[in-house]
Amino acid sequence: MRIAMVTDAWTPQRNGVVRVLTALTATLKAMGHEIGVFEPGAFPTLPCPSYPEIPLALFPGARLAGLLEAFAPDAVHLATEGPLGWAGRGWCLERGLPFTTAYHTKFPDYVTARTGLPLDWSYAVMRRFHRPAAATLCPSPSVYRELRERGFPGAVEWSHGVDTDTFRPRGKGMFGLPRPVFLYVGRVAVEKNLPAFLDLDLPGSKLVVGDGPARAGLMRRYPEAHFHIVNGDDELARAYSDGDVFVFPSRTDTFGLVMLEALACGVPVAAFPVTGPRDVVDGAAVGVLSEDLAGAARAALAIAPDACRAHAARFSWGAVARQFLTRLRPFGPAAQKGAATTQAG
């Protein structure tokens, strides 16, 4: 199948959405599908306000239309709600073609955190974007329930995965810090709620691995914490493995792929009992969820690394990709082939 993946998030950006999409497209290609990725690198861009590391395509409608026509997809998936997502939506609607979308990020919560605009306004925009979609893929049961409650009728469940070949225990000592090492990996931005971690009274060391617009300010505010940037998945896996507990202070993530990557490296999780952590950790003896984040972090020290690794192994990218394919709404030759197969059966 020829699948058009339209996304405002792509390399060299470093975030969970990019990690999910690059892993998904690689898996789909390995399964024999042809994937066309339509991302900001093919367009003139401007920096995203308050987040200059993210480029936004500038007036992409006409160029994206030409690229999509040339690719001639059998199915279209709009992965993000940025300028490219809206342009892809318009292209499909003008031609009466079905498409799917995804809700990777709690964008309304981020807008409210950065601007103070009412949350309901942002959700109204998101409902408008997703309403015509044949399906809106939600990365966890919690997000699915939340979107259904907020009036997203096309919401469907979809999971995420982890590459357990890359993310595996690599041994301790990469940073040479006093133990125990309480670790955070991910974007360093206001919505990640990092002060809730860095303000904790914990023994040993606090380690933050990642980059983002809040990094410089947090480094000044918390000189006793350790901040590092790593390059490539191999180095990232070594960084995860050096932690004793992965502390995830975010209250706004839809899933939290970083928690799965930490678990695959044998590192237990401490987090608030909210969307994301509940879907990854709740019900499994691989982490502690509590409003007392310091208590959760200390308690997680007692969790066996082998249990964490075994739990992460349940989340394979093959299963994620197969579920993704069932959510697509093919048209043209692919749809006719599917209909013929159904009639023959």
Rank of each mutant, 00 (worst) to 15 (best):
Y144L: 14
Y144I: 01
Y144M: 13
R145E: 15
E146F: 05
E146M: 13
L147M: 06
L147Y: 04
R148W: 08
E149Q: 11
E149P: 06
E149K: 11
E149N: 10
R150E: 09
R150K: 13
R150Q: 11
F152N: 01
F152P: 05
F152T: 12
G154C: 08
G154Q: 10
V156C: 13
W158N: 03
S159I: 12
H160M: 06
G161L: 04
G161N: 06
G161Y: 02
V162H: 02
V162F: 06
D163S: 11
D163Y: 07
T164M: 07
D165I: 05
T166H: 09
F167G: 03
R168E: 02
R170N: 12
R170A: 14
K172C: 04
G173P: 05
G173D: 09
M174Q: 13
F175E: 02
G176P: 07
G176C: 12
G176D: 11
L177I: 05
P178T: 08
P178D: 14
P178I: 05
R179V: 03
P180R: 08
V181S: 02
F182E: 05
L183A: 14
Y184F: 15
Y184W: 15
Y184A: 04
Y184E: 04
G186P: 00
V188P: 01
A189V: 08
V190D: 03
V190A: 15
E191M: 01
E191P: 00
E191H: 04
N193K: 08
L194N: 00
P195R: 07
P195E: 05
L198S: 07
L198E: 14
D199T: 13
L200V: 14
D201M: 10
L202K: 12
L202S: 10
L202G: 08
P203K: 14
P203Q: 15
G204D: 12
S205M: 05
S205Y: 05
K206I: 00
K206R: 15
L207H: 03
V208L: 03
V209D: 00
D211M: 10
D211P: 03
P213K: 00
P213R: 01
P213Y: 01
A214W: 05
R215D: 02
R215I: 04
G217H: 02
G217F: 00
G217C: 02
L218F: 00
M219T: 10
R220L: 12
R221H: 08
R221S: 12
Y222N: 11
Y222A: 13
P223D: 10
P223R: 11
E224N: 09
A225Y: 08
H226V: 15
H226Y: 14
F227W: 03
F227R: 03
F227Q: 04
H228R: 15
I229S: 10
V230A: 04
G232Y: 09
G232Q: 07
D233R: 13
D234P: 01
L236D: 03
A237M: 09
R238W: 09
R238I: 11
R238Y: 12
A239W: 02
A239T: 11
S241L: 07
S241Q: 12
S241G: 14
S241V: 06
S241F: 07
D242Q: 09
D242C: 07
G243K: 01
G243S: 07
G243W: 00
D244H: 12
F246H: 15
V247F: 08
V247N: 05
V247Q: 06
